[in-house]
């Protein structure tokens, strides 16, 4: 086991091509996953980490095929368990840069428990959660992020469950870095992935992703030019929360303890809500907002510093060794109450 740090100093210069594996990509034509794969491969050279120190761990689902297409170390595991497997890997090997690739079903349904605990522990890894609001690999059943009343093969009269909001979930679990990006906003996606990867602790990114076969245009509010212009609200640290077309800018402000939308022009500057990534309470309010009544926030909701699980584990080990030296089994066996038989 070696110390934390991913060997950034000696990283060679890479291009996107260095991160493309020799495997044929097998997603459906037109799937949003292609754009995410391309953005991740393009982001890798900028991380400044030697390729051999990067590991992609995934669970089960369309998104979880991801590791096969990355020319790094990779492990395609079992449904929902990638965060737990990645936690074990980080504890064993804190020198590696670990990514977890998951989906709305993998990460929030069967693996919801592990997602909760990896986030609260603040394990130093990056989670990319592809949210297409549908089970794609099993051919089109509703998912835990599907809207209530969703008509699918398993819910011909509409789904009865209320959806979970990944951003609100992550913040509720105590996540230290929470962001949302969109598969069709390439530049924003790359920028967000790089920021998440640089975060010390768990970097959680919800990627709104299109399943063109079973749930086409689920995120049309951010694809359609006009809707996007009307609703997308870019979160930028230190800048006011405003959105909408230039001639009809809207401001998101607080009226008492309730967020409201008001024309930006008529809002006095001291009432503007200045986005602060270190304010977790504010992030929790933003997490619940969505069109049509509110803007759709994209970008970094929160980024705070907190102790990292495996660093504490390592520190305890180092302190124990500093205190009494490396353990010796021969000595341990003879410790405590013993007696001799001649």
């Amino acid at each position: 086991m070696s110390a934390t740090g991913t060997g950034a100093a000696e990283a060679p210069r890479y291009t996107k091509k260095d991160f493309e594996s020799d495997q044929d990509v097998r997603w459906c034509p037109g799937c949003g996953d292609y754009a995410v794969l391309s953005a991740v491969q393009k982001s890798m050279p900028d991380l400044g980490i030697p390729r051999e120190n990067i590991v992609f761990i995934s669970g089960i689902g369309c998104s979880s095929r991801f590791p096969y297409y990355m020319n790094t170390y990779g492990f395609h595991t079992i449904h929902g368990r990638a965060p737990a497997i990645a936690t074990g890997l980080r504890v064993a090997r804190p020198d590696l840069k670990v990514f977890v690739v998951t989906g709305d079903g993998d990460g929030l349904s069967i693996g919801g428990n592990h997602m909760l605990h990896v986030l609260r522990r603040n394990v130093n890894l990056t989670i990319l959660l592809f949210n297409n609001r549908i089970y794609g690999l099993t051919k089109g059943q509703y998912s835990p992020t599907s809207e209530q009343g969703k008509i699918t093969k398993s819910t011909p009269m509409g789904s009865a469950d209320r959806p979970v909001n990944p951003i609100a979930f992550a913040l509720g679990c105590g996540a230290t870095f929470v962001a949302r990006t969109v598969d069709r906003h390439i530049a924003h996606m790359e920028e967000t992935i790089k920021r998440a990867a640089a975060h010390r602790g768990t970097g959680f990114v919800e990627i709104l992703q299109n399943c063109n076969v079973y749930n086409d245009l689920a995120w049309n509010v951010l694809y359609d030019k006009e809707q996007r212009l009307a609703h997308e609200m870019k979160l930028e640290h230190g800048k006011p929360l405003v959105f909408g077309p230039v001639d009809a800018r809207q401001a998101l402000i607080m009226d008492g303890v309730k967020p409201v939308v008001a024309p930006a022009k008529e809002t006095p500057p001291d009432r503007l809500w200045i986005h602060d990534e270190s304010n977790l309470n504010a992030a929790k309010i933003l997490a619940d907002l969505f069109a049509p009544d509110y803007p759709v926030p994209v970008g970094v909701f929160a980024a705070v510093s907190a102790p990292v699980y495996e660093e504490i584990v390592l520190d305890q080990e180092q302190r124990a060794i500093a205190d009494k030296g490396v353990g010796e089994i021969a000595k341990l066996l003879k410790s405590g109450d013993t007696w001799k038989i001649e």
């Binding site: 086991m1 497997i85 060794i321 490396v326």
Partner: peptide
Amino acid sequence: KRFRIRTIQAEDEIAAASAAIG
């Protein structure tokens, strides 16, 4: 902890096995 061993009290049995596999 001085003996090249790290313990994880996992969130459930599945996570415990998964962490070991990781």
